[in-house]
Structures are given as structure tokens and as C-alpha cells.
Computed example of a mutant assay.
Amino acid sequence: MSDGDDVSPYLRIADGLRTRIAAGEFQPGDRLPSLADLRREHGYSTAVGQSAYRVLEQDGLVVARQGRGYFVRSPEPPPVLVRRQRVAPGEGSPTEATLARQGVAGTWRHESQPRAADDRIAARLEIRPGDPVMHTSYVYLADGEPTQLAESWEPMAVTGGS
């Protein structure tokens, strides 16, 4: 970006922080200057600093932590956490049981098709590109209305016989 006056202050601040991150002044996990620090350093309102950080968050460079500030995001993808609701035997699916406890009729539709893993799916499943996978698309419904979409990719070498 240029240093001209035609560039919004929040974009100039975001560009300055981006440059400092790229130069290694701030490393992944480092806390970035507070909004008050940015206000003192640049002479603009807190809202301008918030807008600058919002741009950097959208660019994937910065992560906000409630009550703690803004931090340089690690280039590593976050670990995948899998949480499965537990239900008693015979209650059906966890989603259906949870909705039923709330007085809602939960159902779903799904469509499965065998596919060849593309590069992204192969990397995620730790298989080779082109390996066979089963792709399933789900539409979850509450009282007949769509409420959630989901996709699953299963390596056929693991689940193909089930």
C-alpha cells in the first residue's frame, strides 16, 4: 500500500502491522499492541485500531482472544477436535436425541457417492490423491426444516466393507 493520504488510517495501520509480522518482529503466538497502544502511537480512535485488526483477522494473520488482545496466528492449521454427544443405547443418533429432548423432531437426509480423493481430502485423511473415498452429504432437519449441512469423507480402505 502507498503511504498516501488517500488510504484509510485503519488500512495503513493494518499494513504496518502486516509488515512487522512479515519481518519477524512479531512471531506466531506473540501478543500484538493493544488498541490503546495503537491509539497512542497513531493518534486515531480505538475503532480505527479495531478495524485494522479485523482486516488482519480476515487475512488469517491475527487471532483475537476475548479479554486478552490480539495475537499473531500460527501458520499451522489448528488441530481437529472431534466431540461426539453421547446417548443411551436405543436413543438413536445423538442429534436426534438432543432435539427430541427439546421437543423437536430431528431427522436427516443424506446422499453418498464413491469418489477419488483430491489433494485437499487426501492430505486431510493422510491418504494418496486418487485413493477411493466415500463422500456423504447430509442435510439435518428440525421439524422438517433444514438446520445444518455436513459432509463426510471416509477412506474406502478403512470403511469400504462396512
Rank of each mutant, 00 (worst) to 15 (best):
V104Q: 08
V63A: 10
M134G: 02
L38R: 10
P146R: 03
Q113I: 06
P94R: 09
T46M: 11
R84E: 15
Y53V: 06
P146T: 03
G92F: 11
P79N: 01
S45L: 12
H135Y: 11
R115G: 00
V80L: 14
S137R: 15
A150Y: 06
A123R: 14
P155E: 04
A97N: 08
L141A: 06
G144W: 00
R18I: 01
A52E: 04
G60A: 07
R120N: 06
V63R: 13
R120F: 08
V133R: 03
P9W: 09
P9F: 09
F26M: 03
V72P: 01
T159W: 11
S8G: 07
L141V: 06
A22M: 04
F71Q: 06
Y44I: 00
R109C: 04
G49T: 05
R84Q: 14
P75G: 03
R109V: 03
T46Y: 14
R124I: 00
S152Q: 08
D59I: 01
L32Y: 07
V62H: 09
M156H: 00
A52Y: 04
D131I: 02
S34H: 07
R20H: 05
D37M: 13
V55Q: 13
R109P: 01
L11A: 12
D5H: 12
T98C: 12
T95N: 08
G92I: 10
R65H: 11
Y140C: 00
E111T: 12
A157C: 02
A123F: 02
D37Q: 15
S51R: 15
A52I: 07
S137L: 12
V7F: 11
G160V: 01
W153G: 00
A142W: 08
V133T: 04
I121K: 00
V133L: 07
A150V: 03
H42A: 13
A64G: 08
G29D: 05
L125C: 03
T98L: 15
R109Q: 15
A52P: 04
V158E: 10
L99W: 10
T136E: 13
D37N: 11
H135L: 12
F71A: 07
G43E: 09
G67V: 12
D59G: 07
R68K: 14
A97R: 09
Q85C: 07
L125S: 02
L35A: 08
S45D: 15
A47Q: 15
R73P: 01
G29K: 05
G43V: 09
L38E: 10
M156R: 11
G49K: 05
R31W: 02
G60Y: 08
S8C: 09
G130R: 00
E57L: 11
R124F: 00
A116M: 06
G92L: 10
V158C: 01
I13L: 10
G43Y: 10
S34I: 06
L38S: 09
R83A: 13
Y140K: 03
Q27L: 14
L99A: 03
T95I: 14
R128A: 14
T136N: 07
